[in-house]
């Protein structure tokens, strides 16, 4: 299909949709764990961005601006969906470092890891077990590749909070992958 555009700003917007929709969709899929919710929130986010085009003055990069809108929409969606309150301002006791840190050494060659659907599922499941507060930071920093400062801007939290959450998220994910890959190592003759 094609979109009809009648102004330069509309044309830029269409280009932004084409450039960022796949990555934003993946981001929302990770955050929301539901394809239909991810699509709904993506549409809402682009609709909101489109209506706010006049207020976008380039102080933030386009990607940071779009991710901020989409991430906020996703977090509002999660708040509506959860029976317990969701706070991004404070970490819960469950967001601390894992109580037990396994020391098994493991190494995965990229061609081994990424061709395996099972490994991919392990990666996805581990992210899904993170709290939204840790998950949002991890996704923006390590999956989407934003800097600490950009991640702080997108989420409206301090850079120190980003660093702390990123550390906790990485440790929890590392623990999940260690338990999976260590079992593999031990099974080898």
């Amino acid at each position: 299909m094609s979109a009809s555009v009648s102004s330069p700003s509309q044309q830029h917007f269409v280009q932004a949709v084409e450039a960022y929709a796949p990555r934003l969709y993946r981001h929302l899929l990770y955050l929301l764990e539901d394809p239909q919710d991810a699509e709904d929130v993506l549409q809402e986010a682009f609709l909101k961005a489109y209506r706010s085009l006049d207020t976008f003055q380039g102080r933030a990069s386009l990607s940071t601006w779009l991710y901020r809108i989409a991430t906020n929409e996703a977090l509002m969606h999660l708040r509506r969906r959860r029976s317990t309150p969701l706070s991004l301002e404070a970490l819960s006791p469950d967001d601390g470092p894992p109580e037990e840190i396994l020391l098994t050494h493991w190494q995965v060659l990229p061609e081994q890891a990424l061709l395996s659907a099972e490994t991919r599922q392990v990666l996805d499941d581990a992210v899904a077990r993170l709290s939204p507060a840790l998950r949002a930071v991890f996704l923006l920093r390590d999956v989407e590749g934003f800097s600490t400062k950009e991640t702080a801007e997108i989420l409206g939290i301090s850079t120190d909070a980003v660093k702390q959450r990123l550390a906790r998220a990485r440790l929890r994910l590392r623990e999940a992958l260690t338990r999976y890959f260590a079992a593999d190592e031990e099974a080898r003759p």
Binding site: M1, S2, A3, Q11, V14, A21, P22, E39, L47
Partner: peptide
Amino acid sequence: ALPPDLHRRLFARLPGLGEEGSAVGR
């Protein structure tokens, strides 16, 4: 991979970016 027709559904909701016309294809 995006869900099929996601762009069509999205552009249909955006005022001024309906399906008619062909300035930008995707």
